[in-house]
Amino acid sequence: MPEPSLLTAQDLELSSVVANNTMNRERGLTGVNSYARELGLDPLDELSGSPSPSWLDLCSGEGRALREAAARLPEDAVLTAVDLVGPLAPTPAPPALEEIVASVTTWTPTRTYDLITCVHGLHYVGDQLGLLARAASWLTPEGLLVAHFDPDSVRRPDGSPAGRAAVTALRTAGFRYDARSHRLSLRGGRSVVLPFRYVGADPDAGPNYTGQPAVGSHYA
């Protein structure tokens, strides 16, 4: 079996798989197609314990959930949406919301957050383990990170599976992984070092558990 041809982060972001214009575009805060359903929690409930709540959404698409949340949170709330493409039909954002068009693989915040979410976004990130390790340090001491994660997407340089080793390393670092919901979570900001070295991504990995084409992340 030939080894996959791996792309750099910059080349990956130009691929048709990553330029997925339907990902996270219409998902709202609550309801059938919502963050509450996908994450297994109501973001507003999670943020209710903070007097000045802060929420970072990675791979945020149109940012509908954060826009809805802005209308129901205190005026001093801080909401940050980061997406490679950003809203396709930009409209003025509420004062509490900052919409950033940037790659999540290189962007870094200047503050910590009470809640960090990534709804089906890791499927399109090359170095997803690197992003998870970085995001762990962006949490407040009691903050919560929740992201969808597919261990089958984590591979060794030759394409052989490395998902089990990745989940073990993440759990050792303090993450929890629910295989049924494919949700990864972490409570409390911390420094995380994972025993993996990113070597590139495969945009031709094929569909993942969602049924949609996804990226294969390869590590030594």
Rank of each mutant, 00 (worst) to 15 (best):
M1L: 14
P2I: 01
E3G: 06
E3H: 11
L6A: 07
D11C: 01
E13M: 11
L14K: 08
S15A: 06
S15C: 07
S16N: 13
V17L: 09
V18I: 08
V18W: 04
V18P: 07
V18G: 04
A19G: 02
A19H: 09
N21R: 06
N24K: 02
E26Q: 14
R27Y: 02
R27C: 09
G28D: 02
T30R: 11
T30L: 14
V32E: 12
V32W: 07
N33C: 05
G40P: 05
P43V: 03
D45Y: 08
E46G: 00
L47C: 04
S48H: 03
P51S: 13
S52A: 15
P53N: 08
P53I: 01
S54N: 12
L56R: 09
L56P: 15
L58A: 12
G61F: 04
G61N: 06
G63I: 11
R64E: 01
E68M: 14
E68D: 14
R72S: 13
R72M: 11
R72K: 15
L73T: 06
L73G: 07
P74R: 12
V78N: 01
A81N: 08
D83K: 04
V85M: 13
A89E: 12
A89F: 02
P90A: 12
P92C: 11
P92E: 14
A93I: 00
P94S: 09
P95I: 06
P95S: 13
A96Q: 15
E99V: 10
S103F: 04
S103T: 10
V104D: 10
T105I: 02
T106Y: 09
P109C: 10
T110R: 15
T112S: 14
Y113E: 01
D114Q: 10
L115Y: 10
C118Y: 05
C118F: 08
V119R: 12
V119S: 14
V119H: 14
H120V: 01
G121C: 13
H123T: 12
G126R: 08
D127L: 08
L131D: 02
L131H: 02
L132V: 04
R134L: 12
A136W: 07
W138M: 06
L139H: 02
P141L: 11
G143V: 01
G143I: 07
V146W: 03
D150L: 02
P151D: 13
P151T: 05
D152C: 02
S153M: 14
V154D: 08
V154E: 05
R155F: 04
R155S: 08
D158N: 14
G159K: 13
G159M: 09
P161E: 11
G163P: 07
G163K: 11
A165W: 08
A166P: 00
T168F: 01
A169P: 01
L170Y: 08
R171L: 06
T172D: 14
Y177L: 05
Y177H: 15
A179I: 04
S181N: 13
H182F: 12
R183V: 05
L184R: 10
S185W: 06
S185I: 04
G188M: 01
V193W: 00
V193T: 12
F196Y: 11
Y198S: 01
V199R: 07
V199P: 00
V199W: 03
G200Q: 04
A201R: 00
P203R: 03
D204M: 05
P207S: 09
P207R: 05
T210F: 01
Q212N: 13
A214I: 03
G216M: 05
G216Q: 08
H218Q: 02
H218R: 01
